Amino acid sequence: MNAALAFLQHLASLGLTLEQATQHHVGRWLAEGPSTRYELRDFLVWTAGRGHSRDLAVPIRGKAEPEGLDEDAHWDLLRQCLHDEELPLDVRAAGSLVLMFGQHLSHIVALTSGHLGMADGDVTLRFDDTPLRLPDPLAVLLKRVIDEQPRHGWNANVPSAWLFPGKRPGAHRSTGPLARALITHGIPIRASRTTALIQLAQDMPPAVLAPLVGMHVTTAQ
């Protein structure tokens, strides 16, 4: 209602009533203010439907296009995650999953050894119901995560299926510390995810992409 009141006050300052307002008045008021003014749309749909105003349009304000990485920078980061032995193992594994499949960290930390499998001699990984065949460097890396991931405190003595075990017994790692580790080692999470998903979407239709990476088909579209 704040947008509606602000628009009515604007019209009053011009000596106009709502019935006298034109599309020009609406467009100019929207252009001169913050994006919250686009909330006026529902109010004008209501007033037009009841004959209190003309049929005035307020466009649905689209989201800003997400910013990704330069393609060369993206592949350089992925190669570094797959092959650079100087990076921590957890950073390499999580970074590879972000850069290759555009996975959110909340999905990555919830992965267990049960998400890995075999198909015709190839290592597979499930984000949803469909197993993905992994390239050899990533398959080897994830196997190493299971075998070599250091465990501290209680987790040193508690069996865990998590690929990224947390400090509490039976819990996976929190996204916050993992995000900070990735950023510290030069892996921008949002930009990396954006670039990976855009590249995947260019190579396969949404109905195929969605179940592979565990997203809703509408998001893939």
Rank of each mutant, 00 (worst) to 15 (best):
A4I: 05
L5I: 13
Q9K: 15
L11C: 07
L11Q: 08
L11W: 05
L14C: 11
T17G: 10
H25D: 12
H25W: 12
W29T: 04
L30H: 14
E32T: 15
G33S: 11
T36I: 01
E39C: 05
R41K: 06
D42C: 01
F43A: 12
V45Q: 11
T47W: 09
T47N: 12
G49P: 04
R50G: 10
R50H: 14
R54Y: 08
R54M: 12
R54C: 11
D55M: 06
R61S: 05
A64L: 13
P66C: 04
P66Q: 06
D70C: 13
E71W: 08
A73H: 04
D76F: 01
L78D: 08
E85F: 00
L89R: 01
V91P: 08
A93E: 13
A93G: 11
A94I: 03
G95F: 10
M100Q: 11
H104Y: 06
H107K: 15
I108A: 10
L111H: 06
L111A: 04
T112D: 03
S113H: 12
S113Y: 01
S113V: 15
L116Y: 09
M118S: 12
M118Q: 13
G121E: 04
G121Y: 08
D129N: 00
D136V: 01
P137K: 03
A139H: 15
L141Y: 05
R144G: 02
R144K: 10
Q149R: 15
A156F: 02
N157H: 03
S160Y: 14
S160K: 07
A161C: 07
F164L: 00
P165F: 05
P165D: 01
P177L: 03
R180L: 08
A181I: 08
A181G: 05
L182Q: 05
I183R: 09
T184C: 07
G186E: 02
R193A: 00
T194L: 07
T194W: 09
T195L: 10
L200E: 00
A201P: 00
Q202A: 07
D203Y: 02
P205E: 12
P205G: 04
G214R: 09
V217W: 14
A220G: 07
